[in-house]
Nucleic acid binder design. Structure first.
Length: 426
RNA sequence: GUGGGUGUAGCUCAACUGGUUAGAGCACCAGAUUGUGGAUCUGGGGGUUGGGAGUUCAAGUCUCCUCACUCACCCCA
């Protein structure tokens, strides 16, 4: 084999496409219920759009971006996530203001240069929402509720919502120092990775999986105990609203998110049915990002859902979408019969019926076999005799019954046969 | 970027400590049925054993390199 899809990419084949369509449909519908409207941004942007927003020190920016120079030497990057693009687009098109709310959603491929593993690819798909213009805790709660609602609409269970607050630019640095102070005393006992984290990003110390680090992590200070009064009040209100909405969640004071722009509320939805990469949805508030981009100070919140991970769970949960079926297959014997078939198929398709015929010159027996495999509802059999009398047998593939129907009356008969008009798609 | 596992037909897997022409099931195609699908029977097409180099009289099997897949770490959806 000479060609293969690039490492970390996948073909979505006809058999699995219906599952993807179902997922995308559910996303659009659910987002719509919460009054989000779609926004489509380019899959690549100026590199600075990402490096300046996601954070230069994050792994995404420092080692995972697909960055290239175009023919004029401009540095462009395939989007590793969509929030930065959406902020750029909203600012560029004057969609943001401090006294109006903007709710937008997106759906599409993202790109990160990582080592592939279960639930992780180099090209993957996310659906997400972003709401701009309100710092109100009720919006945080609605956003979490929306993610939960989406999974409910997809029929998924065994999911859990983790919630935390990472504070704001005032209180987070204080907590960071407290953490460093605490871990400094145990530095020698920690794993290599944690010693790295200590220097680069102390918050990450909290979600180390190494057993030897666990006992120190358990005793470590928690962000929620170090929130300033405003952040603390905000977090309490978010929880209040969530309780009011009867959304189940657990406070996870070890939840840390990897993007620099998050403030206050962060959350994740995790599934037990996935491997190590078990987050199907992650998000949070980012009240300073718009300002950082050079806009006004517009608070915002959003989340992203990993569609491959969703598809993975749905495959396991046997939430299967039905196979596509062809309503009418026309079996033909000879060139003349095929001409008639082509004419009839045109009519069928004008009526909204899916139709197909033989293109391989197969025997009648083989054509019926093919029709059977296509899940054809009916087969219309045209040979020389039929051409002469301009009438042929219409066979019901379920009951195996067949009856003589003139060419001219095929579709009136057909409508009667399959019942309700001609909508046999169901 | 780091570590482990795996690469044999479209798919799932065989092939004793290296030994003749690499097999089976499923799937596919054809015929039995010269014009009637699902079942059955018969036959058939399919492979550079991921690729390359090496050891050997002899390599699917052993060694090295490489590529891919996979799982985990880092990190993230």
């Amino acid at each position: 084999m000479k060609y293969a899809a690039p490492r970390g990419t996948k073909d979505i084949l006809p058999d699995e496409a219906p599952l993807w369509q179902a997922i995308e449909r559910a996303c659009r519908e659910t987002f719509g219920l919460f009054n989000y409207r779609e926004i489509r941004t380019p899959v690549f942007e100026s590199t600075e759009v990402f490096s300046r927003s996601i954070g230069d020190s994050t792994d995404i920016v420092s080692k995972e971006m697909y960055t290239f120079a175009d023919r004029k030497g401009r540095s462009l990057t395939l989007r590793p996530e969509a929030t930065a693009s959406v902020v750029r687009a909203a600012l560029e098109n004057n969609l943001l203001s401090t006294d109006n709310l903007l709710k937008v959603y997106y759906l599409g491929p993202m790109f990160r240069y990582e080592r592939p593993q279960a639930g992780r690819q180099r090209q993957f798909h996310q659906a997400g929402v972003e709401a701009f213009g309100s710092a109100d805790p009720s919006l945080d709660a609605e956003t979490v509720q929306l993610s939960v609602k989406l999974f409910e609409n997809l029929g998924l269970k065994e999911l859990a919502v983790d919630l935390n607050s990472v504070g704001c630019p005032e209180c987070q640095p204080v907590f960071r120092e407290a953490l460093k102070k605490y871990f400094a005393a145990h530095l020698a006992e920690l794993c290599d990775d944690c010693r790295q984290r200590f220097a680069a990003n102390p918050l990450r110390l909290l979600d180390c999986k190494e057993a030897r680090c666990q006992k120190y992590i358990e005793q470590a200070p928690a962000m929620i105990d170090h929130l300033d009064p405003e952040c603390q009040a905000h977090f309490a209100k978010v929880r209040g609203w969530l309780d009011g909405l009867k959304v189940k969640y657990r406070v996870n004071d070890r939840l840390v998110r990897g993007l620099d722009y998050y403030t206050r509320t962060v959350f994740e939805v995790v599934s037990k049915q996935l491997g190590a990469q078990n987050a199907v949805c992650g998000g949070g508030r980012y009240d300073n990002l718009v300002k950082q981009f050079g806009g006004k100070s517009v608070p915002a919140i959003g989340f992203a859902v990993g569609l491959e991970r969703l598809a993975e769970i749905m495959g396991k949960s046997k939430v299967k979408s039905q196979k596509s079926k062809v309503d009418l297959f026309i079996a033909v014997l000879g060139e003349q019969a095929k001409k008639v078939a082509f004419d009839l198929m045109s009519q069928a398709r004008d009526l909204g019926l899916s139709a197909d015929t033989d293109f391989l010159g197969r025997s009648l027996s083989a054509q019926l076999k093919a029709a059977d495999r296509l899940g054809a509802g009916y087969v219309y059999i045209i040979g020389d005799d039929e051409l002469a009398k301009r009438s042929a047998a219409l066979k019901n593939m379920k009951t195996a019954e067949q009856k003589e129907v003139p060419f001219a009356e095929l579709f009136t008969q057909f409508a009667g046969e399959c019942g309700k008009g001609c909508s046999c798609e169901e």
